[in-house]
Amino acid sequence: MSTVHAPLPTPTEAGNNTPASVAGGRRSNRFTLLAKSRPWLLLAPGLIILAGLMLWPLVQVFIYSLQDYGLREINTGENNWIGFGNYIEALTDETLWTIVLPNTVGFAAVAVFTTVAVGTLVALLLQRLGKTWRLIVSSCIMIAWAMPAVTGTYVWTFIFDADRGIFNDMLLGLGIIDGPVNWFTNQWSFYAIVLLNVVHHGFPFVAITVLAGLLGVSKEMLEAAAMDGAGAWRRFWQIVFPTLRPVFSVVIILSTIWDFKVFAQVYLMPGGSGSNRSVLNLGVWSYVESFGQNRYGFGAALAVLLTLVLIGITIVYIRSLMKEDEL
């Protein structure tokens, strides 16, 4: 379509063998070649930068993951190949299968569901509000979003502090518990607090994104459905949800990636940095096992594995969503 702008070289040969060509065969071949390569030429600067900034580090990470790479190797720059030793060690570690993966996957599943559900409900609420109230409410949830994960974690830690936390005070006051309870030592209560923290921090993004989609849902269709007697529940699932499918796929994929990688929210909680073994998740475990012990090769192998898992999840999501679209 943009062939007109091609800087055409002057034809140097008289021979004209291709019947289809009007202006000259060589020229035409060169013409299509140029036309084909043009997008790539135009993309080249961006691609080169991306390759330099993202692809090369990824390749480096993979190279490190095949080595026993520690502080000594960093200092000397030498290689120390051990093949797939790091991968084997990671995949045969009992802690990974009995504690780390169940915690990570279970938490991510619950957190993604809760975040998206809460976010969607808030978006529906926002949609019903008038201009002023929508501004007020969305500003409020923006604050939750803008709060750094570290700050948020400390606030939740204060709230659930065993000796002086407001939560224990309340339960004691109501007579539900007899003495202070340390909520951070139990795996379930620990992750319940992490869930509150992560959902509180994550739902505003979902709410804002879904709200943007909701505003695009055709009002006529909703009105027509209401006229036909469809309730709010049915209108949501049969009109709003199908329209918003692409929006949901984006928020679900992003939330999954984020909730899989949760680190600060666990690491900074009391006992979360490794002293309470029953609450280790993938982020903290890989940090403790690799960087904490200067085992950068092992850490790189874990990063590669995590990347593969997340790519896998993303592919499955996208495929299932596209398939449903086609039906």
Binding site: A162, D163, V181, P270, G271, S275, N276
Partner: peptide, 8 residues
């Protein structure tokens, strides 16, 4: 000690 001290 106290319950909280377990994770101090």
């Amino acid at each position: 000690s106290s319950a909280g001290a377990t994770t101090w």
